Amino acid sequence: MTSTPRRFDHTGMQILDDTESLELLSSVPIGRLVFTMGGLPAVRLVNFVLDGDTLIFSTADGDKYRAAERGDVVAFEVDTVDPDRHLGWTVTAVGHLSVIDPEEAESLRHDLLLRPWAPNRDTYLIRLGIESLEGRRLLPWAQRPHQEAAGEGTNR
């Protein structure tokens, strides 16, 4: 059995493939939605579920809902970091938001067991279709490539 060789970026972080990135994305319940509000970046924590290559979360009528109504392009980021051991990973998904039709939303709420945190009235389900996915992992020191192995020469 041949394993795929690890790939690393210029900083020595391992580049994750889409399969591993999706697995990590589904392993945490909370992520950061990054969108535009009034021409400026905005970041909101949301609880979510992964349904195939689609992220689903609920929201009330507000900024996130309006971004979904417009079909805005957004980023969604999840991570885990161990500051004591200098280990961790991050996954960023990019795609367009959309509002899920109320009939489909009712079925999804039941099937996916998505529960909003806040006691929102008139909640809507929002979909983020993943169009781009990027993952990175900080490996233990002994598993990281040396500069020459990562394709970088030493600067003297």
Rank of each mutant, 00 (worst) to 15 (best):
R6Q: 07
R6F: 08
R7S: 10
M13R: 11
M13V: 06
Q14H: 00
S21G: 02
L24A: 02
L24T: 03
S26C: 06
S27W: 02
V28M: 01
P29Q: 09
P29C: 03
R32D: 06
F35Y: 14
T36R: 10
T36Y: 06
M37E: 14
P41F: 07
P41S: 07
A42V: 05
V43H: 05
R44K: 04
N47W: 09
F48Q: 03
F48A: 04
V49Q: 11
L50P: 02
D51C: 12
D51F: 10
D51W: 09
G52I: 00
T54M: 05
L55D: 03
S58V: 09
A60M: 13
D61G: 05
G62N: 13
D63N: 08
D63M: 09
R66F: 12
A67C: 13
E69S: 11
V73L: 14
V74Y: 00
A75V: 03
T80M: 10
T80R: 14
T80S: 13
D84I: 13
R85T: 10
G88E: 10
G88H: 05
G88N: 13
W89L: 11
T90D: 04
V91M: 01
T92Q: 10
A93Y: 04
L97V: 07
V99I: 14
P102N: 01
L108Y: 15
R109G: 12
R109T: 15
D111Y: 00
L113R: 15
R115V: 15
R115N: 13
P116Q: 06
W117H: 06
W117K: 05
P119M: 02
R121F: 00
R121N: 10
R121P: 10
Y124H: 15
L125A: 08
I126M: 12
L128A: 09
L128E: 06
G129W: 04
G129M: 08
I130R: 04
I130H: 01
S132A: 13
R136G: 05
L138P: 08
L139V: 09
W141M: 10
W141S: 08
Q143C: 06
Q147L: 15
A149W: 00
A150V: 07
G151C: 01
G151H: 03
E152Y: 14
G153C: 07
T154M: 12
R156W: 04
